[in-house]
Design a protein around this nucleic acid. Structure first.
Lengths: 123, 123
DNA sequence: AGAGGTACTTACCAAAAGGTAAGTACCTGA
DNA sequence: TCAGGTACTTACCTTTTGGTAAGTACCTCT
């Protein structure tokens, strides 16, 4: 009855890697966590302008299932939960670096804009 | 009136790269073209078990628009069209290599299966 | 007292992505 | 003559993905 799969079968390695990275915000979450080391839920939400809370936890849960992020719950009130990258999350991020450079080159080529906060924020 | 966009705005390079690679078969098309240098439409279809003709051309057209593949039409009967990677397609493929290796490692870790022809083929 | 913050969860809805199956026009080989 | 190949195109439908908005429970600050 799980709605998540992400366990193949796969055609090749790229196929398997894309499966865990595809999702509107996943690569951004990866970057955000790599950049800050560890982040709370609300910090991530603020760091990803435009993300909905629903998608944010959905993605975080899937990435936890896939062994990319670690979720540390502090049993206090108000609630505190910290997210960080696991070993596999870190290596995935490293593997994404060349792709990021290629993308930066493409942005230059086509003259695409960067997302600005006023574009991303819904209010 | 074009239904395709893929022109940003983007949060970062990975975002921009993912935009042109996301699509069920795109990375596979990239690999297939890199592997064989140049392929005809029907050769690609046979090389990607399970792909529908609709998605195959849709993806090929988008990748052509994005400057990743070159489409060479030979005005003969029966029709002959050859697809190959452009300079940018080749460099994208190179940038995907580390991701492919990471994915191969993940397949090993979770013990995922490779797609077999009987799984992929619809008839 | 009331606004706003913590981290979610849930129901409902819209848009995007992808699949099926048929049609087109012309050719080759059995 | 008739199946099967070439490279598509089109209409229709299902599945997947993502967004909205509300609710939960408890806290701090003004």
């Amino acid at each position: 009855m799980t709605k998540s799969a992400r366990r193949g079968p796969y055609f090749c390695g790229i196929d398997a890697a894309m499966d865990v990275v595809s999702g509107k915000w996943k690569s951004l979450i990866l970057w955000e966590l790599h950049d800050h080391g560890t982040r709370r839920f609300a910090e991530l939400r603020r760091g990803l302008p435009g993300v909905s809370e629903k998608m944010l936890i959905q993605h975080l849960r899937e990435m936890e299932e896939d062994g990319l992020v670690h979720r540390e719950v502090y049993r206090e009130v108000p609630p505190k939960v910290e997210y960080s990258l696991t070993e596999h999350g870190l290596s995935l991020n490293a593997a994404l670096a060349p792709l990021g450079e290629w993308g930066t080159g493409r942005i230059r080529r086509i003259g695409a804009e960067k997302v600005s906060f006023d574009v991303a924020a819904t209010s």
